[in-house]
């Protein structure tokens, strides 16, 4: 291999990449807030016996789970403005698509967790005189959150990685800046490797935490 490494460019590029990372983290954070809240609402909705509620929700979940995130993103970017005559920024469109995508996956995680809660707890809540909403907030939600935690975090970090897609609709995130700089400086190896390492530096500790949490939850449930 005869490639001259030049770390000088990388040093110059670093502040720009950090700016990009900041945009990426912002997107990840907001997408997770949408995903955690909306995901739970959808999961509760899916427990309903009314078909008018469950059918559209099923369609929503399956659609977001079974199509590439890229087409979801591109669809939002190009089609939502035309269909609904709203002109939001690319970053906001990207956020909406990522958030809805995550909510679909999270709702499945919540649903599995809710199913794992013993039925006797519903009976116990009734016996304790809790009404439907109280039951959802004080009995189901805390347990579902605890049980679903490892999957929710895994999904959350997955969205951090998927967020790189917004670079393709020209949101200036870490991926976008990396690609821009690597073509500007003709230094793809240094720049792209650094970008990959920056992504890795964020997601690896989180994945370690998940492994740890899973082991702890297992022990908690085993007793």
């Amino acid at each position: 291999m005869n490639y001259d490494f030049s770390w000088f460019h990388v040093e110059r590029a670093f502040p720009t990449l950090l700016e990009g990372l900041w945009v990426t983290l912002e997107l990840t954070l907001w997408a997770n807030i949408i995903g955690l809240v909306l995901g739970f609402i959808v999961a509760i909705g899916m427990m309903s016996k009314i078909k008018v509620i469950t059918w559209p929700l099923t369609l929503y979940i399956e659609f977001f789970r079974c199509t590439p995130a890229l087409i979801q993103l591109v669809w939002f970017f190009f089609c939502v403005p035309i269909l609904f005559n709203v002109w939001w920024s690319a970053q906001f469109m990207g956020l909406l698509a990522l958030g809805l995508n995550l909510a679909a996956f999270n709702s499945e995680a919540y649903r599995a967790a809710i199913q794992a809660i013993p039925e006797s707890h519903t009976d116990a809540s009734t016996a304790l005189g809790l009404n439907g909403l109280q039951r959802i907030f004080f009995v189901i939600l805390p347990q579902a959150l605890l049980l679903a935690m490892p999957v929710l975090i895994t999904n959350g970090i997955g969205i951090f990685q998927q967020s790189a897609l917004v670079a393709l609709i020209s949101v200036e995130d870490l991926m976008y800046q990396g690609r821009y700089l690597s073509s500007q400086t003709f230094r793809p190896i240094e720049t792209l490797t650094l970008v990959a390492l920056m992504y890795f530096a964020v997601s690896f500790p989180v994945s370690l935490t998940v492994t740890y949490l899973e082991r702890r939850t297992k022990r908690l449930l085993a007793t």
Binding site: M1, A164, M175, A196, F200, S207
Partner: peptide
């Protein structure tokens, strides 16, 4: 394994596309 699971597939793709040919000539 951790590296490929911990980074976006998009960056992996770009890396293979733009960097691997330079590495391997």
């Amino acid at each position: 394994v951790e590296f490929f699971r911990g980074t976006p597939v998009l960056i992996q793709l770009f890396w293979i596309f733009f960097c691997l040919p330079l590495f391997l000539d």
